[in-house]
Each structure stands twice: as C-alpha cells, then as structure tokens.
C-alpha cells in the first residue's frame, strides 16, 4: 500500500492552483508543496490511476516550482549558476536533479522543477539573481514570473499525441517529435509551450500556458480525452511512472 501523504485543503495554503475546485470535485486529495498544495491522487486506490497514466492522463502541476529568465546575458548567467543549457532553442535540457531548463529563445529560459517538487534548485536561482551594483551593470538577463504567468499540466500515456492532435496542429507523434523537443504553438486556440519529456517508458508532455486560462484549458483537455478513456491523475501516479 502506498504511503498515505500528509493531506491538506488547498484553500488553506497561500499558493493555490487556479483549478483546485475542479480537482476537488473530481475527488482529488492534496498534499503541501512549495507553499501551496498539489493534487497527489484521486483516492486511495492507485491502480486505476496507474493504468490511466499509461493510457492517457493529465495532472495539474501548477503548484510545483518554476521560474524563468530572459534578456541579454541570460544564458551565460545561468551557465555560471551551473544550469545546463545547450545551444539550441526549442529544446529542453535536463538538469542533474531532474529539473528541466526549456530554452525558448536565444535569450530566454523557462525552468521547471522535477516531479519531486522540492524546489531548491529553483529557489537558489531566484535568490542568486540581483540587480548588482556595478556600473555599467553586468547583463545577466532578468527574472520572469513563470511560477504565476503559466499554468502547468503534464500529459502522459500512449494516446497523448492523438489527444493533442485534436487541440494542436503540431505533429507530436513520438516518431516525429523527439524527446526534449519544444513546440511553442497554439493549443485549443491559445498560446502554449509543449515539451516532450517521457515519464519512464511512458510517452509524456509538459504543457505550459496562460495561467488565467487554466480553467478553460483543463476543460478542453478533459473533453479531448473522453474518446480515449483518459482522465486526471495525481502527482503520485506520475511519479510512479519513473
């Protein structure tokens, strides 16, 4: 039996997912993370969620830590902070601790935490950035409020690319969209960032989009999943994929 996590009510936390009410209605249980609460599962029986995770599932990772930096000097500064960032834009670069740096543009990086959600890597980066006092000031990019500008959903399962094909015009089939690839595109008529990052052996994608539209996007994903018997899962099931 899986360890029962410490459960909290999401509205007792300062940081709240914009769709926590929808998740509660679906039976989600929440556990603290990053000053907020993340849906850890949808009940005690994890087998259903495990199957769902491999078939087609979406989880709300919005409460997990993330950050971003952009502007001249960003890449060099991040590299000076031991962040691994390669030369190509529209690529995700895994970090040693499981975090991922999404290079969205020559001078812009969006960093998401690992599924562990500890947030130390990201907190350190945020703390390391300062205006500085030299004149002229060293260009080290500027922090971006990615923790709040973008909602974060993870989509997993063998039917994921087919589901996305009902919402997005980019060919996300695994044979065409390699792991680590990023598409900055339109999903359900809104701008979104899609990163392919498998969860163990299971096809996976991270979907980052306007946080204010999280309600709408969640509904679109649920609607698109019906055909494939997909549904929501908690963070625990996603972690269990490996």
């Amino acid at each position: 039996m899986a360890e029962i996590p410490a459960l909290v009510e999401p509205d007792t936390q300062l940081r709240r997912s914009l769709i926590y009410r929808k998740l509660l209605e679906l039976g989600a249980r929440f556990t603290p993370v990053n000053g907020g609460a993340v849906a850890i599962d949808f009940g005690e029986d994890g087998e259903d969620e495990a199957r769902l995770a491999r078939r087609l599932a979406v989880s709300d990772l919005s409460p997990l830590p993330r950050t971003g930096f952009k502007g001249a000097g960003t890449i060099e500064w991040l590299q000076s902070q031991d962040v691994t960032v390669g030369a190509d834009s529209n690529r995700g670069y895994r970090q040693a601790g499981g975090e991922t740096a999404l290079r969205l543009e020559p001078n812009g990086v969006f960093i998401i935490d690992s599924l562990a959600g500890a947030g130390g890597f990201i907190a350190n980066l945020n703390a390391a950035w300062h205006w500085g006092s030299t004149s002229p000031r060293s260009l080290i990019g500027y922090p971006m409020p990615r923790a709040d500008s973008h909602g974060w959903f993870a989509v997993s399962g063998e039917a994921a690319a087919w589901m996305f094909a009902k919402l997005c015009g980019v060919d996300l089939r695994p044979t065409k969209f390699a792991e680590g690839s990023i598409a900055q595109t339109s999903v359900a008529k809104m701008s979104a960032i899609i990163l392919r990052q498998d969860f163990g052996q299971t096809l996976g994608f991270h979907l980052l989009a306007d946080s204010a539209s999280a309600d709408y996007l969640w509904d679109c994903l649920q609607d698109a999943m019906i055909e494939f018997d997909g549904g929501p899962i908690g963070l625990a099931a996603l972690r269990a994929l490996g």
Binding site: M190, S213, Y216, C220
Partner: peptide
C-alpha cells in the same frame, strides 16, 4: 468543431461568484 473560445479568469474569479457577482466579459476576461 469544438468552437474553442478561450476564457480568462482572475485568481479571485470563484470568490466573485460565491459573493453573487454578475460577471461581464472584458475581452477574454
């Protein structure tokens, strides 16, 4: 198709509904 019509909600959206607000569109918001 599904006539995707994005909507944007503020973080306090549901509090307004709970307080009996009459909501109005402001662009996508």
């Amino acid at each position: 198709g599904r006539t995707f019509e994005p909507e944007r909600h503020t973080a306090m959206h549901h509090r307004h509904l709970e307080l009996g607000a009459k909501m109005m569109p402001a662009g996508l918001w």
